[in-house]
Simulated assay, not measured.
Amino acid sequence: MSTVSNIVPFKSGGHIVETACRSLAVAASGLNALEAQFAERDFAGAFLRLIGLIMNVRGRLIVTGIGKSGIVARKMTATLTSTGTPAIFLHPADAGHGDLGMVTPADLVLMLSHSGESTELGPIIQYCKRFAIPLAAMTAQSNSTIAQAADISILMPPVQEACPNSLAPTTSTTVQMAFGDALAVSLMEMRGFSADDFHKFHPNGRLGAQLVKVRELMASGDDIPKVRGDATLLEATIEMTRGRLGGTAIVDNHERLIGAFTDGDLRRTLTAKQNLTESIGQFMTVTPLSVGPDELASEALRRMHDSSVMLFFVCEDERLIGAVHMHDLLEAGVA
C-alpha cells in the first residue's frame, strides 16, 4: 500500500514539463543572485580573504557540512583536490568520534550550513576555538551560530527553493555548489594550474587520455623507422617493414627530417615498376607532416584526421626524436 496520503491525479505531459522548467528558472534566479553578491563590497571582501587564507594555509582545507550541505561539501572537496588545493571532507558525525584528530592548527576549516544552526557542527566549532584553528563559514543566515563563530563568513543570498513546499533544499544547494566551483576555479587561476597539472591528478580514464602528450605515446630510439637521404628504395622499404608503423622517416646527417616514405608511396612506386636500387629521394614526400613532442595527443589525432594521414614524425629543434601512429593514439583512449 502506498504511504503517500494524498495521491495527486496524473497531470498532462505539458504540465509536468512546465513544472520542470519552473524549477530550473528558480535555480537560475538563485545563481543570478549569487553573481550579484560579488558586486557587494562586504561579500567580495570576504571571498578575497577566504582565497588568501586558502592560498597561505600550511596544512589542508577541511570542508565539512551535514545533510544536503554535507553532500555539497563532498563535491566541493573533490573539485578542490583535483585542481591543486589539498582538501579533505570531515563528516560531522565522525568528528566527535575521533576524526577531529585529523584537524591541526596548520589547517583551515570551511563549514557549510544553509541555516547556520546545524547542531552536529557544534563539536567542530568548539575544537576550532580551543586550538585556534581558522574557521570559515558558508551560510545564508548572518546572525546564526556558525556565522558568529566564524573568522570569515560567506553569506549566501536569500533564495527561493524550487520545491513547491519551499522545504526541500534545491536552489540553495545549487547556489552552494556553484560557489564551490567558483572558489575552485579562482584558486586554479591564482596557482597558475595548467593542463599539465590537471593531467597529473587525472592520469586514468577518458579525461586523462585527452591530456596525454605525444611524447608519452611516441616510438623513440631504435623503434623509429628511418633511413638516410642516400638510401635506396629497397632499403627504405625494408626499414618501413621493420618499423611496423606504415612509413619511414628520411633524415640528413644531422638527424633532421627531410622526407617521409609511407606504404601508400610504396604502392604507387611498385605500380609504376620502379627500380628498387634508385634513390629514395625520388619517391619520398619532401614536406612531411610532423608534430612536437609536447603537443597534446588529442590535437595530434585531430590533425591526422584533418590531413588524412596515419603517421606523424615527432621533431624537436628540427631533429627527429620519435614517431606516432594513429592506432597508438586510439589504443591509448585518445579521442
Rank of each mutant, 00 (worst) to 15 (best):
S5Y: 04
S5M: 13
P9S: 07
H15P: 00
E18C: 11
A20V: 13
A20G: 09
A25T: 12
V26K: 10
V26R: 10
A27K: 13
N32R: 14
Q37K: 12
E40P: 05
G45R: 14
G45P: 05
F47H: 03
L48I: 00
L53D: 11
V57N: 01
V63H: 00
G67Q: 03
S69M: 07
T77L: 04
A78K: 05
G84K: 08
F89I: 01
L90Q: 01
P92I: 08
G96N: 04
P105W: 09
L110C: 09
L110F: 08
H114V: 10
G116H: 03
E117F: 05
P123D: 05
I124S: 02
I124F: 03
C128R: 06
T139P: 09
A140D: 00
S142D: 03
A150S: 10
D151K: 03
I152C: 02
S153A: 15
S153I: 03
L155K: 11
L155D: 03
P158E: 15
V159H: 04
A162G: 05
N165F: 13
S166N: 15
A168N: 09
T173S: 10
T173F: 02
V175I: 11
A178E: 09
G180E: 01
L183F: 06
L187H: 03
M188S: 13
R191T: 05
D196R: 14
N204L: 10
R215A: 08
L217T: 01
M218T: 02
I224F: 12
P225S: 12
G229F: 13
A236P: 09
T237W: 06
G243I: 04
I250M: 07
G259C: 07
T262D: 01
D265E: 09
L270I: 13
T287E: 11
V291H: 04
L296E: 08
R302Y: 06
R303F: 14
H305Y: 15
M310E: 12
L311S: 03
L311D: 01
C315F: 03
D317T: 14
G322N: 07
H327Y: 11
D328L: 08
A332V: 03
